[in-house]
Simulated scan of single mutants.
Amino acid sequence: MESITTFNTIKQYCAFNNQGVQHPQISVVDLSLAHPRTLRRMQFNFYVVFLKEVRCGDLRYGCGTYDYEEGTLVFIAPGQVIGQAGEEVYQPVGQALVFHPDFLLGTPLAGNMEEYSFFAYEANEALHLSEKERALIDDGLGKIRNELERLIDKHTKRLLISNLQLFLNYCVRFYDRQFITRSNVNQGVLAKFEALLNGYFRSGLAEETGLPAVSYFADQLHLSANYFGDLVKKETGKSPQDHLQLKLITVAKEQLFDPNKSIAEVAYGLGFKYPQHFTRLFKKIVGVTPGEFRAVG
């Protein structure tokens, strides 16, 4: 089995990169201070934000490599594994903002981390920065670094949390901009999603494997579920789950006009295990039961 280098603490990762720890639960790591090393798979049991400046072996992900532009942010959630083992020796370059989930406990940020869904994106869904955005990111990292260099007092954690939240909120804004500037590409993804939806229900796959999951379509489109969900939501105003349900109801309406099919047969054909679940969803969206809809039609 391929070995994985696991980092459980901020101190371990700082030592790995040849520098002292600034704070036991949060730090800005200068990767250029690390010794040259070979490629490896790594697991982080804390949050990591890589600011990539040049090609860096640490950011090889899975079986693929991604040659990023200058000023790219890659987000890693606790427990995520990145990298690819190899004999190539490289010199890490760039910075890494690392913070432990325990650091967020007792703060408003602890309950809001799900808003920063980009921590669950794949590496090839990274955030590419403009020159002005890069300046704001550098400023945010600088504020965190300056606070870490001060003696710890009663204000330290509050200020670090405030600056961390501001940093992450800027990342949300920049990702929104990236979705907009890639609108043409996103429209292509939406068209493929629609085609996959049609194929899923028309091919009988729903009856064979059950109701479609968002993760299935994301996988078919070679996207992470979170990135796919955010892309669809920003482009259409509806979540992928909303699109799945609306498509399901559209197909259901067509099939209900077939007098040779019972409502239970329609439900099973759409992937429902129990017809009553189909009836409940249909009434929720359409306002009447499938039987009432069929009678009116």
Rank of each mutant, 00 (worst) to 15 (best):
F119H: 04
V214P: 00
S224K: 03
A191L: 08
L51Y: 15
D139V: 06
A252D: 04
G291Y: 09
M42F: 00
L51A: 12
E254L: 06
I10K: 05
V54E: 15
L196T: 01
G142I: 12
N17T: 07
G204M: 12
A110R: 11
R182V: 00
G271C: 09
R202G: 01
L281C: 04
T6G: 00
Y170P: 11
A267E: 04
T279E: 08
I26P: 14
R134E: 08
F201A: 13
L31P: 14
G62H: 12
Q91R: 03
F272T: 06
A135G: 06
L223D: 08
L39P: 00
A96G: 11
I10V: 15
R202F: 10
R280I: 10
L196C: 05
L105N: 14
K143L: 02
E147H: 04
F50Y: 15
N124P: 02
G210W: 10
A77Q: 04
A295H: 13
Q84N: 05
S32F: 01
G79Y: 01
A135I: 08
L159D: 11
Q22E: 13
H23C: 07
K247F: 09
Q43A: 15
C63T: 14
L97Y: 00
S3L: 09
Q80K: 08
E70I: 06
E133F: 08
G297R: 10
S262R: 09
R158A: 15
P212V: 05
D242I: 01
L205N: 02
L221C: 07
R182F: 01
G297P: 10
P36G: 07
E122V: 02
A264C: 04
N112M: 01
L148Q: 11
D242C: 02
D102N: 14
G86D: 03
T279A: 14
Q276Y: 05
Q80D: 05
V81Q: 04
Y13S: 07
P275T: 02
Q255D: 10
R134I: 00
G140K: 03
R158E: 11
I152M: 10
